[in-house]
Amino acid sequence: MTGPAAVQVWWARLGDGHAGLLALLDPVERARYDATTDAANRGRFLVGCALSRIALGELLGLPPADVPLRRVCPRCGGPHGKAELAVPPASEYADVDFSVTHSGAVVGVAVCRGAAVGLDVEEYTVGLDVDTAAPSALSDTERAALYARPAAGRQAAFLRTWTRKEAVLKALGVGLRVSPRGLVVSAPDAPPAVLGWPERLGPRPLVGLADMTVDGVHPASVALVGTGAVRVDRRDASPAVAAYGGGG
């Protein structure tokens, strides 16, 4: 793939959830929603499912409830893995990929054609223990650079680095099954780029990265595997989510 690849990134909030969105869920999603006991997690799942269906429905020209999705765990085969678009290999939409993320009150979905996509957002909270999180997340070089910064700026720097790493690992479909220490990215205040690659992932592909900030505070990153450049079409999805099923 040459030239910047376009990715739509839709952002909504936990507070956008409402009972009318339940009509958009398929039976598997509804069962998982009903089985989730924590209210906040249940709400994030509902908004994430609805937002995925709204974003994909716009691209496919389908009502959100009719968007064909499947979830298959790569380890056990159960219906709780990463959601994928369930279309035949010969379909004109077989090259569509999407990624869902949520943290705190923020929920996001990225949709792309022609490249694998990963999206991550991290809630910026005062209570993050960077000293505990950094050893398992950062390479030795990244940790040294982090601690060379003033203490007041370390949390923001760590979260920016982390969103880049997790976005790439999500785009690859491996998530945290691969240690993020082996994936080295550029400094938080430098243009986003992958500098080091985990050996266990094989040859390094083209990876495009773009950074965002949600609500002026929360760092987010989107990664595309298969292209070296990213063009982001950012959407505020809150009105769209509120419009379905009687919300708002």
Rank of each mutant, 00 (worst) to 15 (best):
L62Q: 12
R53S: 08
R44L: 13
R71V: 07
D95L: 06
L46V: 12
R30W: 04
L60A: 03
A50K: 05
D66Y: 01
R30F: 02
G48Y: 03
F45P: 02
R30T: 09
Y93A: 15
P89Q: 01
V87D: 00
F45G: 13
R30E: 11
P27L: 04
V96T: 13
A35R: 15
R42H: 08
V87F: 00
A40T: 14
G61F: 05
G77V: 01
V67K: 02
S91C: 06
A94F: 06
P27M: 05
S99F: 03
P74F: 14
C73Q: 07
C73W: 09
A31W: 04
E58A: 15
I54H: 07
G81A: 04
A40C: 05
D97P: 06
L59I: 09
A39P: 02
L51C: 14
C73L: 03
L85K: 08
A90G: 13
Y93D: 14
V100D: 00
L46W: 01
L60R: 07
G81S: 09
L62M: 14
E29R: 12
G81D: 06
I54G: 03
G78H: 04
E58L: 12
A40P: 06
R44P: 09
Y33E: 09
L59W: 12
P63K: 10
A35G: 13
E92D: 14
H80P: 06
K82I: 06
H80W: 10
S91K: 09
R30L: 15
G43C: 08
R30P: 07
V87P: 01
D34F: 03
V100Q: 02
C76D: 11
L69N: 03
D97G: 12
E84T: 14
N41Q: 15
D66Q: 14
S91E: 03
R75Y: 14
K82M: 10
C76A: 06
K82V: 11
V67A: 01
D38W: 08
T37Y: 09
H80Y: 06
A31P: 08
I54W: 05
C49Y: 00
Y93G: 01
A90S: 12
D66R: 15
R70W: 07
R32C: 06
I54E: 01
R42N: 08
P88R: 02
V96G: 05
V28L: 03
Y33F: 15
